[in-house]
C-alpha cells in the first residue's frame, strides 16, 4: 500500500473546477434479469480524481464501463462532456474519443509495435498526420518513461511496461477524462509502483480521473473522493481522509477491515 505514497502530494491542494465532466442520473442496468447497477447518481467535476472501490461483483467496473458505453445502461441518463450517451453511434464515438480507458489486462494490440499502438487512434480517428502522431506518441512514451521501447512489440515488454504503454496510448488521444479499470490488479507487486507513479503524475497535471482500484495508498495519495460500492449501489462516498479514518456504513467498515486488516 505504501508504494504509492512515495511521492507525497496533498490531494486537497489540487484544483477542481466547477465545470461538470460527467453527470449520471438515476442510472440502472441489468444483465438479463440481474440488476447489476441500481439507481446510480453521481456528478464528476473537471479535475476530480475519484477512486471507486468495493468487493468483487459490486458493479464498480460495470459503472465505469458504462461511462464510455462499453456497457449499455437501460435506464437513466449519462452525460459525458455535454454529450448524452444514447444508442446514437455518433455520440458514442464522440464520447469514446474524448474518454481514455486503461484496462486490467492492458489490451495492447499485440500485432503492432508500441509506437503503432500509440499512433493508431490519432491517425485513424483524429486524422492526425502520421509524423505528427508519432511525435505526440513519443512525447507520451517519454512521459511514461519508456521511449526506448517504441519499436518493440507488446509481447516483449513486462506487465508494468505494457500498462504504462496502455496509459500512453490513451493519452495520445488527448482525452479530457481517463477511466482506469483495476489498472494494477494483473501486475506483479514490484511493477505496481511504476504504474501508480505514472497515474499520480497524471493526477498532478489536473486530469479528470475515475479509477477502480484496491490500491488504498493511491486513493489516499491522489483521490479527492472515494466511492464505495456494494451490490450495485453507491453505499458511501467521502473525502479519502474521512473515508478511511471514519467510515460510516457497516458495510464499508467491514470492507476496509478486510482489505487493510493485515
Amino acid at each position: 500500500m505504501s508504494e504509492a505514497t512515495a511521492r507525497q502530494i496533498d490531494p486537497s491542494q489540487m484544483k477542481v473546477s466547477d465545470e461538470v465532466a460527467i453527470q449520471i442520473t438515476q442510472m440502472n442496468k441489468w444483465y438479463g434479469t440481474f440488476h447489476v447497477l441500481r439507481d446510480i447518481n453521481m456528478t464528476v467535476n473537471r479535475g476530480e480524481r475519484i477512486v471507486i472501490c468495493g468487493p468483487s461483483g459490486s458493479g464498480k467496473s460495470t459503472l465505469i464501463r458504462c461511462i464510455n458505453r462499453l456497457e449499455e445502461h437501460q435506464q437513466g441518463q449519462i452525460i459525458v462532456d455535454g454529450t448524452e450517451l444514447t444508442s446514437d453511434l455518433k455520440n458514442i464515438d464522440k464520447v469514446r474519443s474524448e474518454v481514455g480507458m486503461v484496462f486490467q489486462h492492458f489490451n495492447l494490440f499485440p500485432h503492432l509495435t508500441i509506437l503503432e499502438n500509440c499512433t493508431l487512434a490519432p491517425i485513424w480517428v483524429r486524422k492526425t498526420p502520421k509524423k505528427e502522431a508519432e511525435e505526440i506518441a513519443m512525447h507520451f512514451l517519454r512521459k511514461v518513461k519508456i521511449p526506448e521501447q517504441a519499436n518493440k512489440y507488446p509481447g516483449q515488454l513486462s506487465g508494468g511496461q505494457q500498462q504504462r504503454v496502455a496509459i500512453a496510448r490513451s493519452l495520445c488521444m488527448k482525452p479530457r477524462i481517463m477511466l482506469f479499470d483495476e489498472p494494477t490488479s494483473a501486475l506483479d507487486p514490484e511493477m505496481i509502483k511504476e504504474v501508480l507513479d505514472t497515474m499520480i503524475q497524471l493526477a498532478e497535471e489536473g486530469m479528470t480521473m475515475l479509477c477502480v482500484t484496491h490500491e488504498m495508498g493511491f486513493a489516499q495519495a491522489v483521490a479527492n473522493r472515494v466511492i464505495f460500492m456494494d451490490q450495485g449501489q453507491i453505499v458511501e462516498q467521502n473525502a479519502p481522509k474521512e473515508f478511511f479514518s471514519n467510515p460510516q456504513s457497516d458495510r464499508t467498515k467491514l470492507f476496509l477491515s478486510q482489505i487493510l486488516g493485515h
Binding site: L70, F103, N107, H111, V125
Partner: peptide, 29 residues
Amino acid sequence: PRGQYEAADALGLDYWKAQRLIIMPQALK
C-alpha cells in the same frame, strides 16, 4: 480476447476500422 474489441472501441475506432486495423489482422494471422 474480448479485450481487443473493447480496446478498439474505447479508442473510438468504428466497427469497420476496428475490424480492419485490429481484429482482422490478428484473426487472419
